[in-house]
Amino acid sequence: MNTNRIVLSKKSKRFLEDLRIYLFSSGKNADEIEDIVEELQVHLIEAERDGKSIDNIVGQSPKAYMDQISDEMLTDYQEWFTYIVIIVFGSFGFIIMNDLFQGSVSYSLLEIIGYLSIATVFIICVFQAFKYIAAHNLSKIVEYVIFYVLGLLPISLYIGLIFLNEVIETPVIHLEMLGMIITAILTLALLLAISYWAKTWAMLIILALLILPDTVLHSFHISETLHLLLGTSISFVGIAIYLVIHSKLSRAHS
C-alpha cells in the first residue's frame, strides 16, 4: 500500500503542495482544499502508473489550472480572518510575556496600533508571497530573494516604529502590579487557548525557552556581556534541540 505513495513523482508532489498553498492563500476553505488535493493525488498516482506525465493532466500552465479550480471554490475569508487574529494576538502575546518577565510593561498608543498593523501587514504579505511562489515556476534564487525581503519587512517596520515612537508622542499605557498580573493571566490564557486550538505546545515551549534563561540568569551575579551571551545561546540551542526532537517525533509518528 505504501508503494503507491512513493510512486508519485517529485514534480507531481510539488504541484499538489503548490496547489494547496495557492488555494489556502486565496482564502479557500481548508476541507474543500483537502478534498480536491486528495482527488487529484489519486488521479496523478494512477496516471503516472499508466506512464502519463503531469503535463497531460494539468496542461501547459499550472497557474491557469489552479485558477480554474480556485474559481469553482467559495472564498472563505472567515477562516483567513481567524488565522490572522490568532497570529496577530499570538505574536502580541509573545511581546507582552517577554516584557512582563523583564518587569516593564508600558506601551504608547502608537506602539500598540503599530504592533498590530505590522503583524497584519506582514501576514497579508506572507500569504500573497506564498500564492505568487506557488503559481509561478521560480528559480530557487528568486524564491530566496522573496523570502529574504519578506523577512526584512517586519524588522524594518519595527525599527521604523521605534523611531516614530520617539518623534511622535501618544498617550502611554503603563501597567502597575495589578495590571501586570491581570495582563499576564489573560495573555497566558490566550496563548494556552491558541496552543490547544493548534494542537501543539511548540509556541509555549519556544516562548519559555526565549524567556526563562534570561530570567534565571538574572539571579546569578554575572557580567552583562556574559549574561547576554549565555542567555541567547541557551535560548537558541534549546530551540534547536527542541526542533530536532520535534521533527524526529513527528517523523516516527507518521
Binding site: 482527488e39 502519463k52 480554474q68 469553482e72 471554490m73
Partner: peptide
C-alpha cells in the same frame, strides 16, 4: 484536452 480539466467541471456540477 488535459485530463485535469474534468475536475473544475465536476466541482461545478456538484455545486
Amino acid at each position: 484536452f488535459s485530463e485535469g480539466t474534468i475536475y473544475p467541471l465536476l466541482m461545478r456540477m456538484q455545486k
